[in-house]
Design a protein around this nucleic acid. Structure first.
Lengths: 362, 362
DNA sequence: TTGTATGCGTTATCAA
DNA sequence: TTGATAACGCATACAA
């Protein structure tokens, strides 16, 4: 027997024998009320199990006390942790989180933003494929909706909580260079839909050049490759002379370790590997993973705080990027043999590989 | 210059030179309208960039098209994946997800449920500390709010998407027994606030008895222990004669591998380890992790589907538990030395250890 | 085919 | 100190 009875303030008022206004004032402690009225309203509310409808409140007050959050996917721990960080910062503020995920689809991104806006969220915390080109996001902002970005590098009028992907990637190149690596590759999972990945490659590439290394090979994987060490091994095997790999995230880096094992190669003797993100498990590995350590939860907290500030009319300025740390790990060593054939083909153009191509080629 | 202008259907009607009812009918395709009126309304809406306010709609229609979801934490990939599964099932249904997390706090659980209910969600998908004892959850149900549980074992009147923790844990005991292990331990992270963990221990314990093994030692950790291999090593070192450990999740199991390495012990020669959950990374380890493989995303999808059914008035029955698989892995082997001192102290009571105790004792 | 008026649950205004 | 009443944005019954 579900009696979808919603108890409204009207019920409370009737039971207390007073007008709704009085009931509202008492329950909200927002105005004068005689001790007796107070007493009776509170009792009535208690007995009826009354609680305010956030809906009615939002409609009348113009604020929904809801914040919209869009991330590519919660299945990626990095985003999940960031959202958890957002939650923590929001805790106690009265704001709730309406969450959407796009599965790395730019189209879905736009729809999600529109839907969140339709729910009249009071603000938006967003990580998407291309915030700078999203019509929906632009429109939301034009309507005066505060927007706080996560993970993205700074874009014109937006405030974002981020790490400096370019700089972090340069640091990786430096670490490689210092150990004598010259022939490296960058392994990316969603290069086309992730500005983060692209910025990392750009920084890595730039520093490789500056250090007089070969331009790093860009190897783009799809989901299937990343999850299948055998496929990954085949792809890596097709690369000649590689001594070091920079993976665009730790999961990929760990998969590379596995693939190397499959190929009978030793990490870091035959191949050095560095990841990105700094997930906890990397430390626990038999051969602990060298990686760029970031703090996704801190990113979420900062994005949330920025949004809270904006909503309170204190826009604030773009904050500096959150710090990252290069975590040393046993997956990074010196190349086995210093290559001495420098002068032959030095600055060759970066080559782009996808599994499709590689498999067909051999 | 943010012009917090919200365009309402009233604006559209005015611009189109008609009444709101007509505008509503056209935009919703919910009633008759002349071709001309249709034309003008649609044009007006387009030019104004109009979109419906979900708030007004919800208030009038009695449905918010929002579903509340409560999980302990999104920082735990298992829950994050489940929520992602929920999202996938909800995609295309028009429902949005309002997410709350309690950080494994029973008090916070209740507040979260109340808050979600106040937002007038149309249904609830919940994983919490103690659903069977939550006053807020009970009240929500009494008000006719459909509730779908995730991860929990079946409880009286609730429908839940779950794996059979008891049975899965028995399987682990069986695997240990088959290889000759007799002296085992169960490693738990949040024993008191997780019925899952408790059910796993119960199943493990039961099957150990049935197999004539020692009662498994229950070792309860707190967050700090789990994240610090050194602490973990100290705890394990204090255990005598242990040949196998069942960790209540994979992360813990991997931490145990690390701790064993720290102690100079070899897995699985000196110590066998089995985890729970079946996270992908376990496969990629140098010594691949034996574990119970589950599908959190499938759990999320089932919970969401169940809720959708309930909301459509087709309550459905409790579905059987989702399947699990014992994933064989190199962390499971035979004990080095078969213990022959059986008859001495056989059925001894299970001992309970917490780090606090252990550290103080030595 | 159309538009007016009512109500959804609140809060705020304002006259009593 | 109180209580009608008017919004808030929408859908709809009903009158035109």
């Amino acid at each position: 027997m579900d009696r979808r009875q919603k108890v409204t303030i009207k019920d409370v008022a009737r039971k207390a024998g007073c007008g709704i206004a009085t009931a509202s004032r008492v329950l909200n402690k927002s105005g004068p009320a005689s001790a007796e009225a107070r007493e009776r309203v509170e009792m009535a509310a208690r007995e009826l199990g009354f609680s305010f409808s956030a809906l009615g409140r939002a409609l009348q007050g113009g604020r929904s006390m809801t914040i919209g959050c869009l991330v590519p996917s919660l299945a990626n721990p990095v985003f999940a942790e960031a959202v958890q960080g957002v939650q923590e910062t929001l805790k106690g503020t009265g704001y709730q989180l309406l969450i959407a995920s796009s599965n790395y689809d730019g189209e879905a991104d736009n729809e999600a933003i529109a839907t969140l806006a339709a729910k009249e969220v009071d603000g938006l915390i967003v990580t998407m494929v291309a915030p700078e080109r999203s019509a929906a996001l632009k429109q939301a902002r034009q309507r005066g909706l505060p927007v706080s970005l996560m993970f993205h590098d700074p874009i014109d009028g937006f405030l974002t909580a981020h790490v400096d992907n370019f700089e972090a990637a340069r640091e990786v190149a430096r670490q490689f260079a210092d150990r004598g690596h010259r022939h490296t590759a960058f392994l990316a999972l969603r290069f086309s839909t992730s500005d983060r990945s692209r910025n990392r490659y750009a920084g890595f590439h730039a520093e490789c050049r500056a250090r007089d290394m070969f331009d790093p090979t860009l190897i783009e994987l799809d989901e299937a490759d990343a999850n299948t060490p055998e496929l990954l091994a085949a792809i890596l095997a097709a690369q000649e002379g590689l001594t070091a790999i920079f993976a665009s995230n730790d999961f990929l880096a760990i998969a590379v370790q596995k693939a190397a094992r499959l190929m009978g190669e030793s990490v870091p003797r035959d191949l050095s590997v560095v990841g990105f993100d700094g997930i906890e498990i990397g430390r626990l590995l038999d051969v602990p993973l060298a990686t760029i350590e970031t703090a996704p939860d801190a990113m979420g907290r900062q994005a949330a705080q920025t949004l809270l500030d904006m909503m309170q009319g204190r826009p604030g300025a773009q904050r500096p990027p959150l710090p990252f740390d290069f975590r040393v790990g046993a997956t990074l060593g010196r190349p086995r043999t210093e290559s001495r054939d420098d002068d032959q083909v030095r600055p060759r153009p970066p080559s782009v590989h996808s599994l499709k191509t590689d498999l067909k080629q051999g």
